[in-house]
Design a protein around this nucleic acid. Structure first.
Lengths: 239, 239
DNA sequence: TCAGCTATAATGTGATCACATTTATACGGG
DNA sequence: CCCGTATAAATGTGATCACATTATAGCTGA
């Protein structure tokens, strides 16, 4: 147990217009998403404040925001940790993603004009590039951008914050999984999605999104492999 | 425009164990849910702090939490308001509820043992009582409790916070609608849901939940009526 | 009478401080 | 050598204060 390890968070420069709280929030969010802070790691307000060289107040607010998004867990004994993952919880998150995102995609489809369609096609091409490079972090980021762009085509969308919350909860675990599955090929279901959109076939679009999510989290299909990841995330240290 | 009206929030006593921030959060959340603060109403940290007789800090955190749940909207010009409702947004919230809650119900069904089943049956009976009384606020509260109990039967559930966020966004508008539809009969689809559970019929359960949500928001089916509510919520004052 | 500018008031943000509670460390007894 | 207790360090919570930014009201001039 190295609960006092340096926590190598890279602060990243602060935008001039951006408030300190927003900067801290973004920094901590990225740290959680990238797996810099691992499940079980105890976080303290003062510790993070000293690390980021800010006062305790912005850190407090950022932590509470992340807790509200279920990216962090507020323990009763006044302690904040990254929630630990279980196989069942992982399955629930996966299924919830499918339920919510297929719905969001179907609702967004009528709003996708040719300009938006080209934008999505362009993104898919960029993902193919990253695919050949084997840059998994880039793939993940572009993949999220693709989904976000699709769902937000609906000008009245209200599901995106909910979806982001799910991504955030899966984030640290996804990173762990990817690190151990470097040669894991992410099947590109985006072309199926695009052709479904071109045909205005909502059902086909839903199936494409479902497959995309399932493929991305495919390793969860192997209970043994999943269990090893869960254990690894519990015991690993972050030096 | 009476942006400086007294804002008659009833504080309600604070639990001894409860932290001040939690109390403020709960108070403001109830106020939003009950329609005490109406869409468009500008809220200020200092104003609420003075009203609730606490310092600015707990109010700040409570406001940010509610904003994170999309119960409040942080305007760029540093102002916090209850978001205004549109017909399209209402429809999106309604459909999102159906997508998420049918999913949560189906996932929870396998975990409902006889004890939990009896608990749900008991709640349904209490709703029938409130129905004959015509106590709409009580009906709403018991109805939420019924749904919550159902979804939380799943010990690994992660959808409840997302669902609560949707309820919160619909909250102030629901109240307005109910006030104008005092004689509106809320069809009880809970018995259908219970019989579906008894038969372990996931599809029937999903249909029952869908009908329950649609009935509860039935007035939205009439675009003209909905529009009048939207306008009313925009123009009304809260003295 | 009304548009545009200025001064004043109010607001959000962030830092610092005090206090109660919890957690960690060290000491002493078994 | 292990464990329970007492002391010390650390933490979350909440209040207060200072400052930059923004909104509001008041005033001037056409």
């Amino acid at each position: 147990m190295d609960k006092h390890s340096p926590l190598n968070i890279i602060p990243g420069p602060r935008d001039g217009t951006e408030t300190v709280t927003q900067w801290v929030y973004r920094t901590l969010r990225d740290a959680v998403m990238n797996g810099t802070v691992l499940p079980g790691r105890a976080l303290t307000i003062r510790g993070l404040a000293a690390l980021l060289d800010v006062s305790a107040m912005p850190v407090r607010e950022a932590l509470r925001l992340l807790a509200a998004e279920n990216a962090l867990e507020l323990l009763g004994n006044r302690r904040v940790i990254v929630p630990e993952m279980t196989a069942m919880k992982f399955a629930e998150l996966c299924e919830a993603r499918i339920a919510l995102e297929t719905h969001a995609a179907a609702r967004a489809m009528p709003y996708i004009d040719s300009r938006r369609f080209d934008e999505l096609t362009e993104m898919d091409a960029r993902i193919d590039e990253a695919q050949t490079e084997g840059n998994l972090i880039k793939i993940t980021r572009l993949n999220q951008q693709f989904h976000r762009t699709l769902y937000l085509a609906n000008p009245h969308d209200i599901t995106q914050p909910l979806i982001e919350s799910l991504w955030l909860q899966l984030g640290p675990f996804m990173r762990l999984a990817m690190a151990n599955l470097a040669d894991h090929y992410i099947a590109d279901r985006h072309k199926e999605a695009l052709s479904a959109i071109a045909k205005s076939d909502a059902y086909a679009l839903k199936m494409a999104i479902t497959s995309d999510i399932r493929d991305g989290l495919a390793f969860a299909a192997d209970p043994h492999l999943l269990q090893s990841f869960v254990l690894q995330s519990k015991n690993s240290t972050n030096t």
